[in-house]
Amino acid sequence: MRRVITVTVINQSGVLNRVTGLLMKRQFNIESITVGHSEQPGMSKMTFIVHVEDERKIEQLLKQLQKQIDVIKVNDITDKAIVMRELALVKVVSPPHARSEINSIIEPFRATVIDSGKNVVTYQVTGAPEKIEAFIDLVKPYGIKELSRTGATAFTREIQKVNSPQLSILK
């Protein structure tokens, strides 16, 4: 199961270490973590994407996170209506003769060119992690020289579908 979890923490030294240390100690498989300041002063927001075997394991993760003294709020938002965004910088091999071809096939991704050289172009692409994957797949045949992804950040939408499916423990 892939779960998206957001955590609000007090922005204190060591808190990132404590949270990631906890995930390591309890053997959770993390796909990505992002962290940054939130709208409240002194508070940071983290977004994790983790893979877990079953409901029991995700329940443990949420409870163990909640137990940390510096953690204010933990939410599993996987089954909610959410906005999720990731940013990737991709440096693609792009000799002049191929450049316009590449630009046209990636057009739907609305990637922006943020740097270019004689034989390479750096694109910035944002979107859900799946969109980033698709973008990468598309440019891979041309040759990727460098790739850097931020990991996903997310939160819930204003309007939620009624009766969205939820893990029993989250009800």
Binding site: R56, Q60, K63, Q64, Q66, K67
Partner: peptide
């Protein structure tokens, strides 16, 4: 007193 202990090992 620790919610994390409940359901950890035994349903």
């Amino acid at each position: 007193i620790d919610p994390a202990e409940i359901g950890k090992n035994v349903p």
